[in-house]
């Protein structure tokens, strides 16, 4: 049961945090929540398809199909986050009152359509990958009713804890100021993009596209990846206790556009204020 809790909690927590952050963003910018229904439907449908064709996908490309699909999904989510970050970055440098009254200002200054499209894309693809793993995991126990009961109860507990944490985080973030939230959102996007890029590197290392090398450091003695804290950090920022050079390079390649967007908006703000 503990294994089921850990595996499902890890998947659910990551999805719950992404959904929570984007829902709070919607609320702060007065965007209707309708998009989440489409995103959830898209995520569930695509995860079911991925789970159904898991064996066919795994056998494709000389047995490397699963890794390629995972890498592609991670990459697409990163791209969505970069676009979202580029839309919210100018708001970080506006005056507090501007951000506070942003929902009341003219629609034309808010590129909502692009933001909503990216949010649907990010949530849908994140769910596709994570929920597909849950389908496959639970499906593995269908033949044994005793094990299935344990897996289902563990899964329910994992889903419950992950969703509850998402809900509590949502209400904590809803009551902070729009400006403070946008700062938190940007940091979250940076950490998440970095974590996901390390997962891409890991997938490509597994199929030999990239050469594995000795880890740059090993922090498993401080925080083990398979401990509760390690699982939590993995879900939050894609924690890896012993990354190698390629993973670190991937991390910075994904994080760099976000940092450049931040610097560019800061520079533009300073220039206009002169």
């Amino acid at each position: 049961m503990v294994d089921a809790i850990l595996l499902i909690l890890r998947e659910v927590l990551e999805a719950a945090l992404i959904i929570t952050m984007l829902l709070v963003m919607s609320r702060k910018l007065s965007i209707a929540f309708n998009w989440i229904v489409i995103a959830l439907a898209l995520g569930m449908l695509s995860s079911w398809l991925l789970a159904c064709y898991a064996y066919a996908i795994a056998d494709a490309f000389d047995g490397t199909g699963q890794e390629w699909i995972n890498a592609l999904l991670y990459f697409s989510v990163i791209l969505s986050f970069i676009v979202i970050a580029s839309i919210i970055a100018p708001l970080l440098f506006n005056t507090p009152s501007h951000v506070q009254y942003l929902p009341l200002t003219n629609e034309s200054i808010k590129p909502y359509r692009k933001l909503i499209f990216c949010a649907v894309f990010a949530v849908g693809l994140s769910l596709a990958r994570e929920v597909a793993e849950i389908w496959i995991y639970v499906g593995g126990f269908l033949h044994d009713p005793n094990l299935l009961q344990s897996a289902l109860i563990g899964g329910a507990i994992g889903v419950g804890i992950g969703t509850s944490l998402g809900v509590i985080t949502y209400y904590l973030l809803v009551f902070i100021s729009a400006r403070a939230f946008l700062n938190i959102l940007f940091v979250f996007l940076v950490l998440l993009c970095g974590g996901l890029s390390m997962q891409i590197a890991r997938q490509l290392l597994q199929i030999g596209i990239l050469d594995s090398a000795t880890p740059l450091w090993d922090t498993s003695s401080i925080i083990n990846e398979h401990s509760w804290l390690g699982e939590l950090l993995y879900a939050l920022i894609g924690y890896d206790s012993s990354p190698n050079a390629i993973q670190v390079i991937f991390y910075w390649v994904a994080v760099m556009p976000l940092l450049l967007i931040l610097l560019w908006n800061g520079y533009r703000r300073n220039r206009t204020s002169i």
């Binding site: 503990v2 809790i5 507990i157 419950g160 804890i161 509850s164 809900v167 509590i168 209400y171």
Partner: peptide, 20 residues
């Protein structure tokens, strides 16, 4: 929503602790 989330979290955390 908030109360159910808090009760669920506390209940399931207790269930996991109890299980272990």
């Amino acid at each position: 929503v908030l109360l159910v989330a808090i009760v669920t979290l506390a209940n399931f955390a207790a269930a996991v602790r109890g299980y272990l």
